[in-house]
């Protein structure tokens, strides 16, 4: 369980939000809303441990993530604005080596299957530099899906995806959450996550 207590984050000297508290339990999703510059990405990066919060605590099962470090990182997958793909490597190599860096061994067959499920099986043997934005995004998402971590932190996962891919991805998120996983995501698109267990947070608004 991820719990956040009285969290405050700053960027430069500007305070983005303060006194933010929420919990995400197994089988729940959290949708973070807010206008551009409200601090959605900063909040998500803080939840991954990439940004140190100005105040407050982020806890996983009751322990501060800055004390847990590697034990917490084993539970989290982060999908950021940067795809974390290497231009020179093929789609398949990117996913296999990307997971290898995070210590997850994965079968090539499983990667092929996931790429096919995301509709990018043709990208498997192509270097990533020749792919379109949407295809790159899907290859990067395949890595998250295969990591087998309980907590997914997804920053704008739906941008640049076509209607079909948006549908596939939202079904995958629903499947992950209903199987006892957790997801924290931001999106400006009107994606109807078919989930009863979605909590919403609105940043950048008072009260």
């Amino acid at each position: 369980m991820l719990s956040v207590q009285a969290l405050a984050c700053e960027r430069g000297d500007k305070k983005l939000f303060d006194n933010l508290s929420f919990e995400v339990e197994a089988g729940h999703a959290l949708h973070v809303h807010g206008p551009n510059g409200a601090g959605k990405t900063t909040l998500l990066r803080a939840l991954c441990g990439l940004v140190a919060p100005a105040a407050g605590r982020i806890c996983w099962d009751g322990e501060d993530i800055h004390d847990l470090r590697e034990d917490y990182f084993r539970k989290v997958s982060y999908f950021g604005h940067l795809n974390a793909l290497k231009d020179e490597l093929t789609g398949l190599e990117n996913v296999v080596l990307g997971l290898g860096l995070a210590g997850h061994a994965v079968e090539e067959a499983a990667v092929s299957e996931m790429l096919a499920r995301l509709g990018v099986e043709i990208c498997q043997d192509l270097p990533v530099k020749v792919l379109s934005q949407g295809q790159k995004k899907r290859v990067a998402l395949a890595r998250i899906m295969l990591a087998g971590t309980p907590l997914w932190i997804l920053d704008e996962p739906f941008t640049a995806l076509d209607v079909h891919a948006v549908d596939v991805l939202s079904r995958m998120i629903v499947e992950h959450v209903t199987n006892g996983g957790m997801a924290v995501l931001t999106t400006h698109q009107d994606v109807g996550l078919d989930l009863s267990q979605v909590r919403h947070i609105h940043l950048g608004k008072r009260g």
């Binding site: 991954c48 590697e70 860096l101």
Partner: peptide
């Protein structure tokens, strides 16, 4: 750093 793989390394479960 530019393509985001470094931030993934920072939050990898490996030291």
């Amino acid at each position: 750093y530019m393509d985001g793989t470094l931030e993934q390394m920072l939050i990898a479960p490996q030291p």
